[in-house]
Amino acid sequence: MDCPSVVEFAATLPNVVYTAANRYTCSEPGQQQIRDAIREHRLNRVVVASCSPRMHEPTFRATLESAGLNPYFFEMANLREHCSWVHEHEPEAATLKAKDLVRMAVAKAAYLEPLEELVVPVKQSALVIGGGVAGISAALDLADAGYKVYLVEKEASIGGLMAQLDKTYPTIDCSI
């Protein structure tokens, strides 16, 4: 895939005032470059064309926030998982597709609105369903940390399958 031509193309798109190529955008220097660009060019929308938003959307939202921009002013174009990695033998078609993906992300970015996340309180108690070794351990950890725990067990005793074991590996010691 011809990355420089994608960057060149991006610069021609409506509303785009600044473009930059970067090898590791998600790294700290990469994020700093975004923060600097936001300040220097007074950007109000950011598009990163790199990997999957399922991976790094939270990373870049935080970058925007730390630069004083609403985190929802961010959009991602997935050029790695959805383009360069799946069209390895068709570099020209992949480059065309990459341009489209960037164009789509920029188009959406123009319509992005600032959003506030809804915040709700969290009750200071936990329910643990199942009183086997996992449920017991989780309940004790939570209760020792100071939280109220309800441990619900279907059978008449906790212990689960573990209680039926004589000894357990790797220590060959008693299970209960």
């Binding site: 009183g131 017991i136 309940a139 004790l140 209760a143 020792d144 100071g146 939280y147 109220k148 725990v149 309800y150 441990l151 619900v152 067990e153 279907k154 059978e155 008449a156 005793s157 906790i158 212990g159 209680a163 209960i176």
Partner: peptide, 17 residues
Amino acid sequence: MADVGRHPRIELMAMSE
């Protein structure tokens, strides 16, 4: 296991769903 039974902050509900 016994720790669960006597922990002041754990309410154990056996035979429950």
